[in-house]
């Protein structure tokens, strides 16, 4: 993979241990780069409202290029991010998969 001083390495990690690393330029959002690389991530609205694409940043940091309306402040504070409008600001590792979104909102189950 070409190294680009302005780009960041984003490691996507699934619950089953699988991982993929993307090279994301500063003007790119993580979901678009994943799609262009044939890496399947869940998504819906693509404008930060629906949170289907929620991932959890466990290392490094991202910023949102549009307001992440589908996430509450508390979720943002815990490191959740909307990958359809998120761009990395450092190299980072992000937990991904369809089940992350449900974990953010929680369930009434004990």
């Amino acid at each position: 993979m070409d190294s680009d001083a302005d780009s960041f390495a984003v490691e996507l990690v699934w619950a089953d241990g699988r991982s993929e690393t993307l090279t994301v330029a500063p003007d790119e959002v993580i979901l678009d780069v994943a799609a262009a690389s044939d890496v399947a991530l869940p998504y819906g609205c693509r404008f930060g409202a629906c949170a289907t694409c929620t991932g959890k940043v466990v290392h490094g940091s991202v910023s949102h290029v549009k307001p992440p309306r589908g996430l509450k402040e508390s979720a943002l504070d815990e490191g959740y991010a909307l990958l359809c409008v998120a761009t990395p600001t450092t190299d980072c590792r992000v937990r991904v998969g369809h089940e992350i979104q449900a974990a953010v909102v929680g369930t009434p189950w004990k």
Partner: peptide, 11 residues
């Protein structure tokens, strides 16, 4: 609002 119900049901 979509940005309320889209992400899931939160009491």
């Amino acid at each position: 609002a979509p940005n309320t119900y889209y992400p899931g049901f939160d009491l």
